[in-house]
Amino acid sequence: MEDQTLAQLLTLLSLRHLVETILVIALAALLVRGIRFTLDTLAERYPRARLQLAQGFPAIRLLVWVATIVFIAMVIVRPPDSVMFALLGSLSLAVGLAAQDGIRNLIAGVVMIFNPPFRTGDMIQFGGHYGEVVRLDLSATWLRTFDDNTVMIPNAEFLKGAVANSNSGALDEMVVIPVDLPWPCNIAEARAIAADAARASPYCYLKKPVAVVVSQRQELGQLVVRLTIKAYVVDVRLERVMASDITERTLEALAERHTALTPEMSCAE
């Protein structure tokens, strides 16, 4: 009996099977790289469809690898049922014990592919990190922050906590820009200037509305009027550039018109 099992195993691990398996894996890897290259080329050519193209890749890659594993098992190796069940059982136990976290992340990755809280290209806020999702692997997600840091977050973490998604698959996203002015000031004029500054920025997406919300707060014992400018940026990657541009324009225009600096122009007039 033992001799028979050994013989079966040796047949399964024959050089021919090994070479064919390596060949199929290499082909699959090549196919995945080819798909990635094609999608990247298309994204370069059609930047508007950049996010949609990037979003399809994780699912395609999963499909390719699952198909590869099934092909190797069913067509190349073709183990007898008894060996298959024995191997699967042992493998499950070993892998389950040794790589609990990894498996958890892997399952979370699969769940996220079919029920995605975000996709490649989205700007997300999670666990103190804010950035663009640049890569969605089966076990981890990679963010690029505005400081050009790459942050790796295990996928299982996303199923535990809340994720804030700024653009949900769109190229544009709302950018919130606070501008504080000392009280007293001419609020109506300041609000008009802030809205004008937002519309004048070349990074502002004019198809969506610009809003300015006024509120008040205390800062070091002083009453401060906060203008919160809400405008959409044409491309998520320009978020900080637009915020800086609008702040700069607003402050310069306010200073030019002395709206915030001279109390005599206040609303109390």
Partner: peptide
Amino acid sequence: LVRANYLY
């Protein structure tokens, strides 16, 4: 420019 999302 439309394809690149700079004109809309």
